[in-house]
Each structure stands twice: as structure tokens, then as C-alpha cells.
């Protein structure tokens, strides 16, 4: 039987392999060094590569991320870690006004080959300032690439692809997936960013899901199958570039689409993808494109309130039934 790895180890293996292969890959972040990361997500890298390549930064997200950009412009491939996605706000100017614009401003003569990896995810009682995912915000900024991996095997190949990419790539890791296991794939496998996948074929409806929503969609699809509704699950993997062709091809077969995300619904990822499907596959649709997202609130810590925030398999199944 092939070996399984956790999501956390998938990313870690990618870092090991890329740092071994390319001396210009460095890691920067808070407690990523000897401590091995607050989620044990960088364990062993410091021992393997030393303090010059695995750099513990002060709690200075703006300055340290800006330095990662400068280092990238000067020939390095930094992986910069923001412990909780919520703290990305501190990096925002450097991200939006420097990293994202350098290639355009230099007319292609300068690039910023770096990865900003960060964690997100409602559900651990971490509350309003430690749960948010900013992938939709980031996807709105021209010049950034956005990856939201859904399982361990994908996390590994997508992190490798992100490190090798010459543009700034944001890599959003859902902490709820960290311990989940998946079959490891061939160590040499690489994947260009922007290629989605069909996880479950189905004829009746396309469920578009990223990150943790893939698991939610799977559970919903199983319930729906028992009722005779066959849902197809499409995981675009990357929001930018977006595998529009795969999404449209699926919708043209199923004639229905439900787009879902674990971040707030309003102006979010689901709106963009639903609009794209509506514009480009209108004639194939048998129902309006439906959307599900988190409620438009900060994440509460209460054990009774927090589970209400994100879409559940039951809500997904109900939304599909309403479309049929």
C-alpha cells in the first residue's frame, strides 16, 4: 500500500526538497527556526539548512515581508510565513504596492519569485482575529497568484510549483486540514499553477470547491448520491490563474453549478466564479448558478456559534436539492 502523508508534512516535504535542490530558496517567519513553527510545520528545516536559510524574524510582518520581496528581486526565492492569515493585513502595503506590481512596473525586467504561505480557517475556537482567510482579497490584486490546496498530496506538489514560479504566490493553508492524510504522490511530480482537477465525476450538478470545502462537497455528494443525484466535484486548486476551461467544460455537461467557499460570501471568490460561469456558459445552464459561503461576520469563538459560520455538507446538499 502506498504511503500516506499529512497536509502539514506535504508542505514540509516540499520545502525540504526545494531547499535541497535550490540554494536560493530561503524560509522566513516567526518561530520557523529552531522552534520548528508554531504548528510544527517547519520542523527539521533549521537543523538541515541553518540560520542563514531558515530565518526567524522579529514580529515585524511588514518589514520582514518587504525584505523578502527585496531578497526575491535580488535573486533569492523566499518562502515567507505569516503565522495566521489575519496578520497578512500587516503585509498588505508591501504585498499590494510592491510585490504585485514590480513585474508590471519594470516592464517584465524584474520579478518577485516568492511564496507567502499562511494559515486560515474557522473552527478551532480561535476567534475573530485568528481565523480569517484573505484569499479573495488577494485574488483581487493584479500580479499575485493564489493557491488554496485541498489535501496533503496537492499541498506538496502545489508548494513545489509555487516555489518554482517566478511570480509572488500566496499559499493558503487551512489549519483544519493539517492532520488530514492523503496518498503521497511521486516525489518528482510537479504541476503548473492554474490546473484544476475533477475529484468526483457526476452528471447532475458541478460543485466548485477549494481547500476545506472539497471535503464538505464530498460528504454532500455522497448524501446526494443516495437520493440519485450525481454531483461532480471540481477543485480549481488556484484562484489565480483560474482553470476556467475545466470549470466550463464541467458545467456544460452538468448544466448546474454550486460554487462554495469557507470565507465570507459577500464579494467573495464564489461571486467571481459564479459570474464567470454565468457569462461564459449561460446557454448551458438549467438553473441560476448558486453560491454558498461563510456568514458575513467575524468568526466567533463560542462552541454554539462557530459551527454555524461555514457551509456544511447538509447546507450544500440542501442547496443542490433546491436547484434540481
Amino acid at each position: 500500500m502506498a504511503e500516506t502523508i499529512t497536509f502539514r508534512d506535504g508542505v514540509l516535504e516540499a520545502l525540504f526538497e526545494e531547499m535541497r535542490a535550490d540554494p536560493s530558496v530561503i524560509l522566513m517567519g516567526e518561530d520557523v527556526g529552531a522552534a520548528g513553527g508554531v504548528f510544527q510545520q517547519t520542523k527539521g528545516l533549521f537543523e538541515a539548512f541553518g540560520a542563514r536559510r531558515v530565518i526567524d524574524t522579529p514580529i515585524s510582518e511588514s518589514g520582514a515581508f518587504g525584505m523578502a520581496i527585496g531578497a526575491a528581486m535580488a535573486g533569492m526565492r523566499p518562502v515567507f510565513e505569516v503565522m495566521f492569515g489575519d496578520f497578512m493585513t500587516l503585509c498588505m502595503d508591501q504585498l499590494v504596492n510592491q510585490a504585485a506590481k514590480v513585474r508590471y512596473m519594470s516592464n517584465g525586467a524584474a520579478t518577485v519569485p516568492l511564496v507567502l504561505r499562511t494559515t486560515m480557517g474557522v473552527g478551532a475556537g480561535l476567534g475573530p482575529q485568528h481565523s480569517q482567510g484573505f484569499h479573495a482579497w488577494a485574488a483581487h490584486v493584479p500580479g499575485l497568484k493564489i493557491v488554496v490546496p485541498a489535501d496533503a498530496a496537492d499541498a506538496k506538489v502545489l508548494m513545489k510549483a509555487a516555489i518554482r514560479d517566478d511570480d509572488p504566490v500566496l499559499f493558503f493553508e487551512d489549519r483544519q486540514l493539517y492532520a488530514a492524510r492523503a496518498m503521497a504522490r511521486d516525489a518528482d511530480e510537479t504541476l503548473p499553477l492554474g490546473r484544476g482537477r475533477i475529484l468526483r465525476p457526476g452528471r447532475d450538478v458541478t460543485l466548485v470547491a477549494i481547500g476545506r470545502m472539497v471535503g464538505v462537497a464530498r460528504a454532500a455528494a455522497e448524501a446526494l448520491a443516495r437520493e440519485g443525484i450525481e454531483a461532480e466535484i471540481v477543485d480549481p486548486r488556484c484562484l489565480v490563474p483560474l482553470d476556467e476551461a475545466l470549470l466550463l467544460e464541467s458545467v456544460r455537461r452538468t448544466h448546474r453549478a454550486l460554487v462554495m467557499d469557507a470565507a465570507p460570501l459577500r464579494y467573495g471568490v464564489t461571486a467571481e466564479i459564479a459570474a464567470m460561469i454565468g457569462e461564459k456558459a449561460f446557454d448551458w445552464l438549467d438553473a441560476p448558478v448558486a453560491r454558498l459561503g461563510a456568514v458575513d461576520t467575524p468568526a466567533p469563538i463560542s462552541r454554539s456559534l462557530e459551527p454555524l459560520v461555514c457551509p456544511t455538507p447538509e447546507k450544500v446538499a440542501a442547496a443542490v436539492r433546491a436547484m434540481m
Binding site: 518589514g63 520581496i69 527585496g70 531578497a71 533569492m76 502595503d93 508591501q94 510592491q98
Partner: peptide
């Protein structure tokens, strides 16, 4: 680069120094 953000170039130079040292 010249920079439209006051202070924006400061970390870029410090980061280039980090790269040069590495």
C-alpha cells in the same frame, strides 16, 4: 526602484542586502 509609497523602498534594500549576504 523609485517608489510611490513613502518608506516603501526601505525593506527592499534591506532584503537585497539579505540576499547579497546569503
Amino acid at each position: 526602484g523609485t517608489n510611490g509609497i513613502v518608506g516603501g523602498g526601505i525593506p527592499l534594500a534591506a532584503g537585497a542586502a539579505l540576499a547579497a549576504r546569503a
